[in-house]
Design a protein around this nucleic acid. Structure first.
Lengths: 208, 208, 208, 208
DNA sequence: AATGAATGAGCCTTCATTCAT
DNA sequence: AATGAATGAAGGCTCATTCAT
């Protein structure tokens, strides 16, 4: 399969070039021509593999997202603290450290994805992943986590992601700090606890 | 002050036109020429008041943000329910219903602001507002809310805003539903409770 | 005549503002609005006194040109060296030092005048002045200068002006140097000498 | 090299279109869109080869300047008349007839170049050319022309160019007349003679 | 006389995408 | 499969000028 190997190399080169441009110059200079040039291929070749500009962005985002989810899976399967907090922390830590440290590229990708309205498609795999993961989280020693409603799943995932996303977009220096991680964990664990408590006392009532 | 009144009218007309265009057609047709035409002024007049296209978007965002914060303030002063949950619910409800029901325009503005990297400046007033508001929330009958750290403030505000923002961007139909509001309130209240509990048992430790 | 005095003040303020803007920022920022603002008058007032943008430029150029010609006249009437060279030198020196030392403004005015094709009207007074002056130059002790043909007048005036103009446009540092003045004088005097020699030996023949 | 040949054709077509538009309509209608259309290429193609509007003008000016200098060189090598006057006349005639007779285009280019302050860069090759040429002129049978100082070179070149430039800008009908050429030659030859005389009698003194 | 908000024609320029080679 | 010259729709923006107040 020399053909496919070559093609995979080209695609990888394009995605790497895209990430580099986003990392160094942001969205402003992220043009298809610039990406092709940086990747060392012609613009025509780029369009051989990607239908349009957004497809490059989407592929990059998907690649990094998949890597992050794989990392989360790995973290959960590792011999981490099997308590709810331990598992939540593992997930959050993986999410915080996604995109291999390229914060500027990550910011640019998030901006582009949101601006293009592509966030919806990207969130679908996240949502199903979270659903699965929440079951795993709730299967531990302390586990009593009921099945989560779709809105609970939404609030749970978007609150954590939203905080991380905001930190990335605002370039908050504390993004990778322990204190920030602690607070995120506290928030998620508290919310999970509240959901369990509500399920115990009866559905439909909100309890502080 | 006929001068200033006239100018204010013109500016208001431009912002209203901008909102209308965003609401009906989204970012794609949001051009300065289109905005000026819809506003009934010449393109030159638009540029008399706004330095460039982004300035229009930013002004619109600021206007709606200020309106939302004012609404939150009003809701808090309404004293509907002086409990923590009551106050949190009032705030969240105001945030959910911001932008006078123009969900598409809201989405477009959020997209544009984020894409332009202007989210940072817009969050500044929100942060200081939340800091003040959290003090107010903690001053009720059940009050034991300690002063919040800047990272706690960040997590608190961005988690709620992030969830609402995601719902707006993903055009979730349940945005204005009671169930969604309930979950948001549950999350915020639970997190506040966890902060209080942590403050009681000693700083620096995260408790589930 | 308070009316006229006021008007003269306004006109002067506008011309001064124009010169200042040209001196500090060049042609790029020379807009009617900028001139009016710098002059402390409204744009409407500017148009009360000047028909259009070019009129401001032309008035400024005419003012400085008149000052330069007056200076030349003064120089010739002064007790300068009454030889041809002395008189030529006096004229050239006055031309070099025109525009009161505002070299950038001078450059900008020259650029603008040339670019607008207004050079023709400005050269008319210069031509007639030179014609008169050449007669005066030829009326000295060594005088045998014949009446000059229109083409000779043209070459005579444009060669000297052209050299100075080029030095101004190219911002040559030697513009005000003695050596540069010497060369200009040498050129003009040599040409005058050649014209006389040709007239002596018979019209229509060119002699080295 | 079909690639490069195609590109050269395109560039040539654009420059030719630019010259035609300047010749027929002047600077007013010289827009990049008009040039591209006249050249039979898209506006995008124009910008593929020229960074901006000015670059087109500059390239046209450089092309014509190079052609004129080549023509001067050819004239000097033609050895029509090896005397100083003969050589000077050959040079001046070539300069007068530069721009292939397109007087209006020439005027427009000169205006644009001067207005943009690009005259400086365009004069650099002229200066070095004149320096070389003056040595060639002085190498004939009557030759005693000393090495010229940079200021002498400046006055020599700019006086001739300045007169021609003025004639072009003022659209003087006598530009191509024999009498005008005679006067220019007379001026230049006289100045060269004065330089030689001054060099003979001792440097630093100006002689009438 | 003065003000300055308003006008609007129209230019320059970008960049995603195509397709002949 | 790759190339890259060419395309062209479309939009942001300037600034000289007007005129109602």
């Amino acid at each position: 399969m020399p053909r496919q190997a070559r093609a995979a190399e080209t695609v990888a080169a394009i995605l790497e070039a895209a990430a580099q441009i986003l990392e160094s110059d942001g969205l402003a200079t992220f043009t298809t021509n610039a990406v092709a040039e940086r990747a060392g291929v012609s613009i025509g070749t780029l369009y051989q593999y990607f239908g349009d500009k957004n497809a490059v962005l989407l592929a990059l985002a998907r690649q990094e997202l998949a890597a992050a989810l794989a990392e989360v899976t790995r973290a959960l399967q590792g011999e981490v603290d099997p308590t709810v907090e331990g598992r939540v922390r593992a997930m959050i830590r993986a999410m915080i450290h996604a995109f291999r440290g390229r914060q500027r590229a990550r910011k640019a990708v998030v901006q582009a994805i949101l601006a293009q309205g592509l966030g919806i498609e990207l969130m679908a795999p996240v949502a199903s992943f979270i659903a699965t993961a929440s079951a795993a989280i709730g299967s531990g020693p302390e586990a009593k986590l009921p099945g989560l409603s779709s809105q609970q799943l939404f609030v749970l995932s978007r609150s954590a992601l939203g905080v991380i996303r905001a930190a990335v977009l605002e370039e908050q220096p504390f993004l990778r700090s322990r204190g920030f991680e602690d607070e995120l964990v506290r928030m998620v664990v508290a919310y999970l606890g509240a959901i369990i408590a509500a399920a115990d006392s009866g559905p439909g009532r909100t309890r502080a």
